[in-house]
């Protein structure tokens, strides 16, 4: 009765080649490793530099606070892709020549440090005022207060936000392909243009991203409760 619905030409023709699939998997796995390295290094930069940005925004110097706040706002309101192009192609004109890898990881790291600084700021602000006052009453210095009292308590509430940006940075690594970093998309494109077969490579890339992103949420939750337990909270 519904025969008219099932006309062959209405369906896309999937023409999946398993032999070819097995052939490209090693290259894609190598690219996966590159993607993880790029995301991991960028994230490490963002974790550290983001903390400095957060602390700078809380400093007593009005000028420093203003400059950093504007910088963070500026980075957050311009596209990452533009920043990647800018640092890689304009950098050499002002004497900063970096390899695609280094340039890409630094750009993505700085970009995400602006987001992470906001996460840290929220975490720091969630620490009750009484904790600062207790630290002052013990005559701790500002640095000691941050290091020993405030930051340990600011981290657990910041972990969900930090985790979201870890997944975010991972999903943004394909943008580095535009300057030639051999991450997953770049490699899939290369494979495709060599053989004119794109289906297998892109599908596998999607599966790889899914397989790495999906468990992240659960892992982050587990990590948060681990840290809270470790801190006795």
């Amino acid at each position: 009765m519904f025969d008219w619905l099932f006309k062959d030409e209405w369906f896309p023709k999937f023409d999946w080649n398993w032999g070819y699939t097995w052939e490209i998997i090693p290259r894609l796995l190598e690219a996966t490793l590159n993607t993880i390295i790029a995301a991991g290094a960028g994230y490490a930069i963002a974790l550290v530099f983001g903390l400095f940005l957060a602390l700078a925004q809380r400093s007593k110097s009005r000028a420093l606070t203003f400059i950093v706040r504007e910088l963070v706002e500026f980075v957050r309101s311009t596209p990452l892709l533009l920043q990647i192009f800018f640092i890689f192609y304009v950098g050499p004109q002002v004497g900063i020549t970096l390899s695609p890898w280094v340039s890409g990881m630094i750009t993505i790291g700085l970009h995400y440090s602006c987001y992470l600084s906001e996460v840290y700021r929220g975490g720091i602000e969630s620490v009750p005022k009484g904790q600062w006052e207790a630290a002052t009453a013990l005559n701790m210095s500002t640095l000691q207060t941050y290091k020993r009292v405030v930051i340990p308590q600011a981290i657990p509430p910041a972990i969900p936000g930090m985790g979201n940006y870890l997944v975010g940075i991972f999903k943004d690594t394909p943008m580095l392909s535009v300057i030639g970093v051999a991450e997953l998309i770049h490699t899939a494109n290369a494979i495709g243009s060599e053989t004119w077969r794109y289906l297998e490579a892109y599908t596998l890339v999607g599966i790889i991203f899914l397989a790495l992103s999906l468990p992240a949420a659960g892992f982050i939750r587990a990590f948060e409760s681990f840290v809270r337990r470790k801190l006795g909270m």
């Binding site: 009750p128 009484g130 904790q131 006052e133 207790a134 009453a137 009292v149 801190l231 006795g232």
Partner: peptide
């Protein structure tokens, strides 16, 4: 202090 303000992670 009234609310003790102990460091909860210690």
């Amino acid at each position: 202090f009234q609310h003790f303000n102990l460091f909860p992670h210690m």
